[in-house]
Amino acid sequence: MTMPMLTVENLMASYGVVRALHGISLEMNEGELVALLGANGAGKSTTLKSITGVLRPVKGTVTFLGEEITNRKPENIVKRGISLVPEGREIFGQLTVEENLRLGAFSSYQRDRYKADLKEIFELFPILEERFGQPGGLLSGGEQQMLAIARAMMAHPKLLMLDEPSLGLSPAMTDNIFVLIKRLQEMGSTILLVEQNAERALGIVDRAYLLANGEVEFAGSAEDLKRKVDIASVYFGGDDEASCEVPL
């Protein structure tokens, strides 16, 4: 089967009158781990929001498993198998860890499988078992991130999208998260990873897209990207054109 799992074509999106995406195209194949990189404000989160239906794109199409899902409601897109771990974790602080996970399983709940899934989650994240009955708001940042990932996995997504999972985590915790993401891929998940930590991300992904100002600036394998683009300049120095324009 050569058809990609996810195809995004010429996606344009805006917030009010401000255009954030100027025509993004990307593809994901089953089993792939792909990174979406770019500086602050490049449009990474906006891309994910448009794919999940949280934001209605102005133009362009999103096709998932051969079916067009542009302009579908977020709840229907989740049902079709795309889960998002949103930027900033967005766990339900008033709900217990248990209730957070239960909601994660909302779209595909089966009692027996739910029990088994919880067991698996506890193996991956033992801390969540300890904190099972506590409100999510009382967890530490890293624990909340684990809960957010666990919650998304409870839906058994065919495509898992993570928006900056390492944000605000200690280096050790970041290592854990990256190891986990790789493991999830090995267990058969298809993953789209948005990361600020480009070098770390390029260390584990198969391919990557580089966004700048709402457009895809570069797409290719992780090696190509490492070779061709000076990653540091993307994040710290702006792109070449911009640096040329700086007056002396």
Binding site: T52, V54, K73, P74, E75, V78, K79, S83, L84, P86, E90, F92, G93, Q94, L95, E99, R102, L103, G104, F106, S107, S108, R151, A155
Partner: peptide, 18 residues
């Protein structure tokens, strides 16, 4: 649970498939 979640974070609740 979904109603309580929605009162806290509506969009995220929809992202759970609710």
């Amino acid at each position: 649970i979904a109603m309580r979640a929605a009162a806290e974070k509506f969009t995220t609740t929809r992202l759970m498939g609710v």
